[in-house]
Amino acid sequence: MANVTFDHKPVTLEGPELKVGDKAPDFTALSNDLQEVSLHDFKGKVKLISVVPSIDTGVCAAQTKRFNEEADKIDNIQILTISMDLPFAQGRFCAAEGIKHLEMLSDHRDADFGKKYGVLIKELRLLARSIFVVDSNDNITYVQYVNEVTDHPDYDKALEAAKQAK
């Protein structure tokens, strides 16, 4: 399993550690209008899945804003940001920050995404910061489990992987 820390203390991630070449597991999460959304809803598109612990923190907000800014620059891509925040909080954040080019999803109900992608932090019931790029055939082409949850991911590598995915 990925060695991940939160505030420099080791945490336990539930679920499998996914790797490049794995088939992306389907999952169910909630959109900001409380509708169930799954990976299958984005069939045929490249997906950049940006996972954040809570949209109400500086690094998570910056990560979401960065991918929102980049979304228009990549053809045939759907950027998803997933957290354990309630859909209402995600909606308020998007409205306040002008987030319009990505889909915010909440995993709060049953942590289905977190368990299937190996990012559910057992001790905190938060998602570990990570990035997954999934091609149009739902194969994982890039993975980053950020070692220290409070650090930024490698935006440039993730964006390059998304541009290369077909």
Rank of each mutant, 00 (worst) to 15 (best):
E148H: 09
D72N: 09
N68E: 01
S83F: 14
S106F: 11
L80V: 01
M104D: 10
Q78G: 06
K100F: 10
T150K: 03
Q144H: 05
G118C: 09
T81F: 01
A111S: 15
L124W: 15
N76I: 06
T81D: 03
S106M: 09
I140Y: 01
D135I: 05
S106I: 09
A128E: 04
D107H: 10
I79V: 14
L126V: 02
S130I: 06
K116Y: 09
K65N: 15
Y155T: 07
G98F: 03
P87R: 00
A95Q: 15
R125I: 09
R129F: 02
V133K: 01
R92I: 01
G91Y: 12
I82R: 09
H152E: 14
S130F: 11
D85H: 08
C94H: 14
D135C: 05
Q90H: 10
G114L: 07
K73P: 05
G114Y: 12
I140A: 08
N68H: 03
D112C: 05
Q144M: 07
K122T: 10
E103D: 13
L105H: 13
L86E: 10
D110S: 12
D107V: 00
Y117N: 04
K100L: 05
D154W: 02
K115G: 09
N139Q: 15
I99K: 07
P87Q: 01
P87T: 02
Q78R: 13
